[in-house]
Design a protein around this nucleic acid. Structure first.
Lengths: 227, 227
DNA sequence: GTCAATCAGATTGTCGACAATCTAGCAAGA
DNA sequence: TCTTGCTAGATTGTCGACAATCTGATTGAC
């Protein structure tokens, strides 16, 4: 029996590529909230016909990153403070649930994966690459969802994570000061590897709340500017 | 100032219509789990070109009702016991959260809406319309999510509800005995209108578990048959 | 007989063009 | 000046056809 395991072949359709590009554009702020997604313009820029682009837009609409008004177009979602509050409230609940599920399933590979992604966060932080820092931080948080052995929970988290990534990205983009290089995740990782469930949950809660207020304040300024 | 408020015009594109038809077909079992969705065949039956059909398929893929394999096609998702367990576990968590959020927001309109939808469930039950019974029961459960004032939670619930609707529909379709006409929701509605949060949560938990075991048993038989 | 190469059929992915719809601007009338 | 109706332009929705890819059967060599 062969011991090597092969990765599935990547979906190599234009649509998938387009989805990736559009998502990245939204999450990095290249497409701002409220902005219209002009099919003809973008399809020309991407050297692609409108069919796969439109299918990609459908996916992102279902993803919640775009909204669609028939015969009017697709728009990048707007961000209001309430959205961020809602996302954080749900995040608390899901994180609690994930920790509960993952607790008896932890093994050495779980701990190794935590460390691996933690390193990536620290690398991005040291490199002052804020976009990547946000991305890797969310990937670190994803570990408990991936290991919780609940496909639906993982799916729900990934949807939420994309929203959070957008909020963070907008926030970082707005403030010009460099990202703080203190390591926020040392305790998070340590407690997840430890034996105290309650402490892990409690710390996760606080960790999530860390820059919540700042984020809401940003959204408020955005809303004020729009008006 | 005018006092009348008008409803937004319904989106009337073929795509939206197709999404509705396909979703209904899946949720009522007209398209069985694992079955392939042949674009050409269906588009001919619907007298529609493949473009809007494909866009509709993209939406349902994102919805989790279909899976897509590039250059191979879209398939109705398979149901295995683990899926149902996962869905119920998440349902518990969300229901708890929704009750918590909705508790201080309840008013007379909330109670009225609960009653209204409860009546619809009872009507469907009396009419022995199992499909509609499933639909109305889930709509009754939706009330707390709609009133919890958290758009993301509502969205998450609606995705979960569609999965549950599919599971229920498959189950009902498989067993030939008529649906029980006892009213399972009397206590549910009463407790949601009452003053005891803990009791409401506890009952919701039990209510959700009501036919969980039966559903899992069905999924197991399905899995066995497939093998 | 077994296995690999090849080929035909079917199905999905993509394209360019046309139809339906919306929006902004202008003109006519009260 | 405000409202209404019209028009032109732009944009989205839909269509039919072609290209790329997969699947299964057939063929041929060994």
């Amino acid at each position: 029996m062969s011991r090597t395991e092969f990765e599935p072949i990547v979906d190599t359709t234009r649509r998938a590529e387009i989805v990736g590009q559009l998502r990245r554009a939204i999450l990095t702020g290249k497409l701002s909230p409220g902005q219209k997604v002009n099919e003809l313009k973008i399809s020309k820029e991407m050297r692609v016909s409108r069919a796969p682009l439109r299918e990609a837009v459908r996916e992102l609409v279902q993803d919640g990153l775009l909204t669609n008004i028939p015969y009017a177009g697709a728009y990048v979602i707007n961000v209001v403070p309430k959205d961020i509050e809602d996302a954080y409230a749900l995040h608390h609940v899901l994180e609690d649930f994930a920790i509960e599920l993952v607790w008896p399933l932890r093994d050495q590979r779980f701990a190794a994966e935590l460390d691996r992604r933690h390193v990536q966060v620290k690398e991005a932080t040291r490199a002052l690459d804020t976009t990547r820092q946000i991305e890797t931080a969310l990937q670190l948080h994803s570990v408990i969802y991936e290991w919780s052995d609940n496909a639906l929970l993982l799916d729900t988290w990934q949807r939420l994570a994309r929203r959070l990534q957008m909020y963070f990205a907008l926030h970082q983009q707005a403030r010009d000061e460099p990202v703080p290089d203190v390591d926020m995740h040392e305790d998070y990782v340590r407690l997840l590897k430890g034996d105290d469930t309650a402490a892990a949950k409690q710390h996760a809660r606080e960790h999530i709340d860390w820059n919540f207020a700042e984020l809401v304040a940003y959204a408020e300024s955005l809303a004020a500017k729009r008006k």
